[in-house]
Amino acid sequence: MIDGVGNYVAGTLVVIGALFALTASIGLLRLPDIYTRMHAASKAGTVGSCLMLIGLAVHIGESATALRALAGVLFLLLTAPISAHLLAKAAYSAGYRMWGGSVSDDLGATVHSAKKNDPLVTDR
C-alpha cells in the first residue's frame, strides 16, 4: 500500500465506522420496541464494524492479514442478518408484542393458524 494515502483512507474509514457504531447504540437506547431496535443493531452496527475491519485491512497492506480482515467482513455480513432474522422470529413466536404505535401487522392474522403445525409450540 502507498504509505501516505493508505493512512488517510484507513483513518477516515475507522472514524466513520466508529460513528456508525455509536449511532447504532444510541438507536438501541432510543427506539421503542425490540423489532425497531433490531433495525439499528443489524444495519448500523454491522456497517460500523465492517468499515473498521476494512480500515484495518487497508492499513496493514500485507496480503494474508488483509485478506483475513476481509474474510471477517464477509463473515459479519453473512451472519448479522441471520441472527437478526432468527431473533425477530423467536421474539414474535414467543409472543412479544410490537410497540403501540405500529401501524400494521400482517403476520398476526396468519400466525395463529400456523401455530398448530409448529413443532416448537406444543401444549404440553
Binding site: 449511532t23 438507536g27 427506539l31 439499528a40 401501524v103 400494521s104 400482517d106
Partner: peptide, 16 residues
C-alpha cells in the same frame, strides 16, 4: 438509520 436515530423527534410508523 443514523439520521432517524439522531433526529430529535423520532417520527416512525413501524409495522409488519
Amino acid at each position: 438509520v443514523a439520521r432517524l436515530v439522531l433526529s430529535p423527534r423520532m417520527d416512525i410508523k413501524p409495522g409488519i
